[in-house]
């Protein structure tokens, strides 16, 4: 799959933002006044910024409001509703905390639940696709939820918990890669099943339908980035999980926390780039590629 920067930024930033909102909704850390204002500002900037970035890859963003209509079947539509719900509930909660010094706990819990649900809906946009075997698995949701929650803990300044969760993120990431590497073959998709010609013999592409590229090849058959996949996996794992965990085990001050956050952000961006670049769409089979 083509790793579009808008979608990578959207999933990483909004994941972090909703992760932080989850903790703030649960009253962690226990803050009020201007400190709370800064925390909520960061969370909303990340969540809303990510959502705005996601509209950049649309062909007709002026009709984006129509995406709220099909919540019954579409995870993309559900994500829209959940995101707006989480932002509105947390907005009211934040207003009360910052300006009225009132913590309406149940409202915070609802906001936290909606924030987690939003990230789950995002993960299901990818996890539902049978056409991309690497994604079509509950591990995709686990990967999105764990990075969001761990990133949220990190931003919420929960050093111990964040270290634990970031270690978990590393483990989930490694399992996701290992299981994902073999899933395409396990599903039994091949150029023979794609063309139905397997009963005659071995099939290979003799001539492509077009001499130039097309939308399908650009969007779904992205093979350029896989050359350095292993190196990039190591970079992602080190910066997303290992380095921040080690930093958080030190006596944590603001400087160390900032380095841990930046390291995690960079590592997650690399990890998310790989999430797209390594995903193989079954349509590649018709082109003799994967």
């Amino acid at each position: 799959m083509h790793p579009a920067p808008s979608v990578i930024l959207f999933t990483v930033l909004s994941g972090l933002g909703f992760g932080l909102l989850t903790f703030l909704g649960l009253g962690v850390p226990d803050i009020s006044g201007w400190v709370a204002f800064v925390f909520f500002l960061i969370a909303f900037a990340l969540a809303v910024g990510g959502l705005l970035a996601s509209t950049f890859h649309l062909g007709n963003p002026q009709r984006a409001m129509k995406a709220f209509t099909q919540w019954r079947t579409s995870w993309l539509s559900r994500e829209g509703w959940l995101a707006v719900g989480a932002l509105v509930v947390m907005g009211v909660y934040a207003f009360c905390v910052i300006f009225l010094d009132q913590k309406i706990e149940p409202l915070g819990w609802v906001g936290a639940a909606l924030s987690v649900a939003t990230v789950y809906a995002t993960s299901m946009i990818y996890g539902q696709l049978k056409t991309i075997p690497r994604w079509n698995n509950p591990l995709t949701s686990l990967y999105f939820l764990s990075t969001s929650i761990a990133g949220g803990a990190l931003l919420a300044g929960q050093a111990r918990l964040a270290a634990l969760l970031l270690a978990l993120v590393g483990a989930v990431q490694v399992i996701t890669w290992i299981k994902g590497d073999t899933r395409f073959g396990e599903r039994g998709h091949s150029i023979e099943t794609a063309t139905g010609l397997g009963s005659i013999g071995k099939v290979r592409l003799f001539e492509a339908p077009h001499s130039g590229p097309n939308y399908l090849l650009k969007e779904f058959v992205f093979v350029v980035g896989r050359k350095h996949a292993l190196k990039l996996r190591i970079i992602a794992l080190v910066f997303m999980s290992i380095l921040p965990v080690l930093l958080l085990l030190l006596p944590v001050g603001h400087a160390i926390a900032a380095v841990a956050v930046l390291s995690h952000l960079f590592g997650t961006l690399v990890s998310r780039w790989l999430f797209f670049a390594e995903a193989e769409h079954v349509v590649g089979l018709y082109y003799g590629k994967r």
Partner: peptide, 23 residues
């Protein structure tokens, strides 16, 4: 159509193409 492309992602057969002019 908002041109999000998700339907083309969901199609195994490559039957849908996003028009680059109309979006």
């Amino acid at each position: 159509c908002i041109g999000c492309g998700l339907c083309a992602w969901a199609c195994p057969y490559g039957a849908r193409e996003l028009d680059q002019v109309e979006g």
